[in-house]
Design a protein around this nucleic acid. Structure first.
Length: 448
RNA sequence: GUACCCAUAGCUUAAUGGUUAAAGCUCUAGUUUGUGGAACUAGCGAUACGAGUUCAAUUCUCGUUGGGUACCCCA
């Protein structure tokens, strides 16, 4: 029999000389542009857990959510993030509108949040204003592990307080989130890069230190020498590193105010038992930082292991014509943190398995099943279904794969006599009961 | 922006300068016209794209695209 069938099939295939029918439309192959990624259903458990913890911790520490637009006037970032930064010089995505306007996809959160603070008169709220957000950012960078062109960050800002307590609290918030996520041993590095009063002195000293060796510097460092001497300390090239290691430390040049502020921050960290490493060469790549700067690294060493970066930016509000307002904030890369969780083998349980599954057979059975399904929704019981499958076998298979404990079978016969079969998927025992009692029966059985 | 490595089905892998590119997992269905997990059977499904060498390229060469890694920078 099967053979006949087979022969028939091949014969018919061969006997049809003219092509399989062509689609009337042209096909194109589409794939993701460079450096962007999908977050697939099986990944979502991590993201959900992450977001839940973030908003929980935010609430506990008194941060309110704000959402700022994905694109803004490019000048916001040119002025805020800084013209000399790589982010603005080579990584920012721009959009030209039909008018003359040039917009930019946000490469970071802080300028947008500061703009919102000013624009909505938040200086009239009780200070400081504590805000947080999460979302996608865009940087045209070369993609590699842990680095994407569209990526997600969580961001916390405290605007309107100069005290070191806020710096410490921002750090505390991120470490709390890490603890709740189950991330082991994040490492904190911290430094102070002074304010507009003391930094010029330090820059002068740096330039003096480098002056004699300027011709030995790498190409980038020559540029840095002119535009942003602090970043000379950041260079990873051997020759430049050697020079950097003999360079004077910022700490020694801090004015009294900055020195006290830094001391205060460290004292608060000590008080909260937060371990930190002092790194005199940590300067960070954004122009607006003053005083405290810090980074938090994961355990996995590598150049992309920065999980959090942040610091104080006491001049930024004023730069946008706001009233002089001190502020501090930080942001963490969500993709990197989730990668780190996976590397550390932190498991996240996904809990969306339906414990009950409805199986329908025949037209009448299907119709009644739809209704029954709604009944379960009203009773807030998660129930699985495969209404698109006609056979009982496929439906049972799916119920089994989903790990349902109970299968409810509603076929033609049951529909006619207003009953339903309830099947225990573990023991295989089943029982026919009146349809109207099913909700209570299921509730009873699920309690066990 | 620079350097190195990589690219076969949804996933993991195989093979070949020459007929129809192979397997496991997954998925769809069947072996029971109303009963899952196992087994068996069948089906779906791929040489990233473009050029060159060749009688013949998935295989060799080049380019493009995408991925990985290092530098740079950053989260």
């Amino acid at each position: 029999m099967t053979q006949v069938k087979k022969t028939k099939k091949t014969a018919s295939r061969r006997g049809r000389p003219s092509k399989p029918r062509k689609p009337k439309f042209a096909k194109i192959k589409v794939q993701l542009p460079k450096g962007v990624h999908d977050i697939l259903p099986e990944e979502q458990a991590y993201w959900e857990k992450f977001r839940t913890i973030v908003s929980q911790v935010a609430k506990n520490y008194g941060f309110q959510r704000i959402d700022v637009p994905i694109f803004e006037d490019i000048r916001l970032y040119q002025k805020g993030t800084g013209l000399s930064t790589d982010i603005v010089q080579k990584e920012i995505y721009t959009i030209k509108t039909r008018g003359e306007e040039i917009l930019a996809l946000r490469p970071e959160f802080t300028p947008g949040i500061v703009r919102a603070y000013i624009e909505h008169g938040m200086k009239n709220l009780p200070q400081p204003v504590k805000l947080f957000t999460t979302g996608s950012l865009f940087r045209h960078d070369k993609p590699q592990a842990g680095r994407y062109r569209q990526f997600n960050q969580i961001d916390f800002e405290i605007i309107g307080d100069h005290s070191g307590v806020s710096d410490a609290q921002i750090i505390q918030v991120f470490l709390t989130i890490f603890r709740k996520l189950g991330l082991k041993k994040p490492e904190l590095f911290i430094n102070s890069i002074g304010c507009s009063i003391c930094v010029p002195d330090y820059k002068k000293a740096l330039l003096t230190h480098y002056r004699r060796d300027i011709n030995n510097l790498c190409f980038d460092c020559k540029k840095r020498y002119k535009e942003n001497p602090l970043r000379l300390l950041d260079c990873k090239k051997e020759r430049c590193k050697k020079l950097a290691s003999k360079a004077p430390h910022v700490i020694d040049f801090l004015c009294d105010e900055c020195k006290n502020h830094f001391k205060e921050v460290l004292e608060f960290l000590d008080e909260m038992d937060i371990a930190y490493n002092l790194n005199p060469y940590l300067v960070r790549g954004l122009d607006y930082y003053t005083k405290t700067v810090f980074e938090i690294f994961g355990q996995e060493k590598g150049s992309q292991s920065t999980l959090v970066g942040g610091g104080r930016y006491d001049n930024l509000v004023e730069m946008f014509k706001g009233k002089s307002t001190p502020a501090v904030g930080a942001a963490a890369g969500m993709e990197r943190i989730i990668e780190e969780l996976k590397k550390q083998d932190v498991k996240v349980v996904k809990n969306d398995k339906p414990r009950v599954f409805i199986i329908q057979l025949g037209d009448l059975g299907k119709k009644k099943s739809l209704k029954l399904f709604e009944e379960f929704q009203k009773n807030n019981i998660k129930v699985g279904e495969a209404f698109s499958k006609p056979s009982i076998k496929s439906q049972l298979r799916i119920a089994d794969k989903l790990g349902s404990e109970l299968a409810l079978i509603l076929g033609q016969k049951e529909a006619l006599e207003n009953s339903i079969i309830i099947r225990d998927m573990v023991s295989g025992a089943q029982e026919t009961i009146p349809l109207e009692k099913i909700i209570n029966e299921v509730k009873k059985r699920l309690k066990k």
